[in-house]
Lab assay of single mutants.
Amino acid sequence: MASQGTKRSYEQMETDGERQNATEIRASVGKMIGGIGRFYIQMCTELKLSDYEGRLIQNSLTIERMVLSAFDERRNKYLEEHPSAGKDPKKTGGPIYRRVNGKWMRELILYDKEEIRRIWRQANNGDDATAGLTHMMIWHSNLNDATYQRTRALVRTGMDPRMCSLMQGSTLPRRSGAAGAAVKGVGTMVMELVRMIKRGINDRNFWRGENGRKTRIAYERMCNILKGKFQTAAQKAMMDQVRESRNPGNAEFEDLTFLARSALILRGSVAHKSCLPACVYGPAVASGYDFEREGYSLVGIDPFRLLQNSQVYSLIRPNENPAHKSQLVWMACHSAAFEDLRVLSFIKGTKVLPRGKLSTRGVQIASNENMETMESSTLELRSRYWAIRTRSGGNTNQQRASAGQISIQPTFSVQRNLPFDRTTIMAAFNGNTEGRTSDMRTEIIRMMESARPEDVSFQGRGVFELSDEKAASPIVPSFDMSNEGSYFFGDNAEEYDN
């Protein structure tokens, strides 16, 4: 783990906690998980779902989305002020799938948001429990990260689609708070800032007046979040320049895209947490497990152990491969979309394939898809080993990566060399080191050039047997250095459309 220093740990961010010791953190995270579980059980009762239907990941996603929508204050306010045809701002819903006479049927349900809020609060001892809501947002974000390569979004903001390893959390809503900021990748933060800068260039009043003052505060806050992700002084200094700019424009845009590229080699610290679907927490609570009393951590053995003992089902389209669908969801559960496939294969105990080789589309089923041909199958979400999630980018030494994705962002704290394609990355730096950030740029390029592919990161860190909950005997895996390590390699994943 990167030293926490003055930073709060993510469990504290996750639970809005002030400084807590490890036991208190485990208890408050457990409380959050228990609340999600209780809410899910109650919703299944309301909807009269069978046990099997309640364990269907598509039903879980609909129920999670309903509660997130019920608590989305800004959108609710907007919907009330701008009524649109056929949208009731006070209601929320989605597809629920039921097994009827041996076939899967889709039923569109509609609930009062007020009623959903009441059920959620009741499951969370009367609190709004925003930490639990954020947790579900991060699960949705991790699922998107594993399912889609955001080529269009990258290109629109002047970045290269091969930089997708920097895009963790790119679909997280803005209201996801400190826990959300911690899991956002460098590219995601750059993209958010670039969008602001572009608006400022096109709209003279963007930075002016009372609204402009708020915009400015948001801009500086985002700059500080991004600065905190960088691990070298030169990158941090460049972020200070971007933040202090009187009138952010093209120079800042250039600096930010430069920094994003540099992060492929001088990786930023991005938190990883295993956020599971509500249909995993519900049955665990129903079986009598007391998360608050037992304590829970999002970055240790607990999620692995929970998945070892969970039964989750998914709808499967006619030509999809259930094992591939399982891999997709497994990666999402562990926030591992940008991790090295060699490491993932070792931990999972079966070969993890790149996205383009998977015969599976996303987990969600569109409303126009034919239910007649839908089957369902068990998702295999178990693992051979477990490993500690990392909050750091690993040290800054790398190795060759593949054509589709030119770097990785480690999820697990496991000893290995970190793949990246130096030639491709360095070719993108057209040696432009003039301007006010020239000395920093020169320094950053120097550090990137001296990074050695064969150097090892996370020295001495290994994986653990599932029986080793105290992480007492690390097993340090050895990897084939020459092997392909990137998930979005030469990829044809669908595009994420909101």
Rank of each mutant, 00 (worst) to 15 (best):
R261G: 10
P303V: 13
Q149F: 04
Y52N: 15
Q308Y: 00
A181S: 15
Q20N: 04
D340R: 05
V329C: 13
F429Y: 15
T378Y: 08
D480R: 00
E107P: 06
G132H: 02
G34Q: 05
R26F: 15
K214C: 07
F489M: 06
Q311K: 09
M167Y: 00
K357I: 01
I63P: 01
T6R: 02
Y313S: 15
T188Q: 12
R26W: 02
G86D: 12
S407Q: 02
W104T: 01
T360M: 09
P419F: 04
A260P: 06
L418W: 03
T350P: 11
S297L: 03
L307E: 03
A153M: 12
L154Y: 06
E380Q: 15
E292I: 09
S438D: 03
R293S: 09
F488R: 01
G282W: 14
L298S: 07
G435H: 04
G282V: 01
K470F: 03
S310Q: 14
T433Q: 07
D145K: 04
T424Q: 02
V363R: 00
E252P: 13
Q405W: 01
V67P: 05
R261D: 08
S176K: 02
D302V: 08
P248E: 01
D88M: 06
E254V: 12
V414R: 00
T396M: 06
G460A: 08
H272D: 06
Q459I: 04
D480Y: 09
A179S: 12
Q231I: 14
M66P: 04
E192Q: 11
A427M: 15
Y289F: 14
T232C: 02
G288F: 04
T437I: 14
E220H: 10
G212P: 01
G282M: 12
R243A: 13
A332F: 00
Y40D: 06
S170Q: 09
F230C: 15
M447Y: 04
I406P: 00
S326D: 04
A179Q: 06
P83W: 14
D72F: 07
D112C: 12
M167S: 09
G212R: 09
M167G: 06
A237R: 01
D16N: 11
L307Y: 02
L193V: 11
E495M: 14
S486I: 06
E81Q: 12
S3K: 03
N321A: 13
S274K: 02
Y111F: 12
G17V: 13
E192I: 05
I265S: 04
R106E: 05
R317I: 11
A451R: 12
A2W: 03
T23Y: 14
R452V: 08
A234L: 01
G288W: 11
D88S: 15
M222R: 09
A332E: 10
A451S: 13
P453Q: 13
I408P: 00
Y281F: 07
R213E: 04
D480W: 10
G169T: 05
L466R: 06
D455K: 06
A286S: 11
G169C: 15
N205S: 13
S165L: 00
Q235D: 05
I217E: 00
E434G: 08
I406V: 15
N21Y: 06
D439T: 02
R243Y: 02
S376D: 02
V270R: 02
T433K: 11
M222Y: 09
L143F: 12
T15G: 00
L143G: 01
G356T: 04
L264K: 03
N370M: 03
K184F: 03
T232V: 13
V285H: 12
G185C: 05
S383L: 00
A336L: 05
R118L: 13
T15A: 04
F206T: 05
R384K: 14
G102T: 02
P322I: 01
M331L: 15
W207P: 02
L466K: 01
A401K: 02
S28G: 14
R246A: 01
L353Y: 04
D203M: 04
R355V: 00
N224A: 03
E469Q: 12
S170V: 07
K273H: 07
G30N: 03
V299H: 04
N430L: 13
E73Q: 11
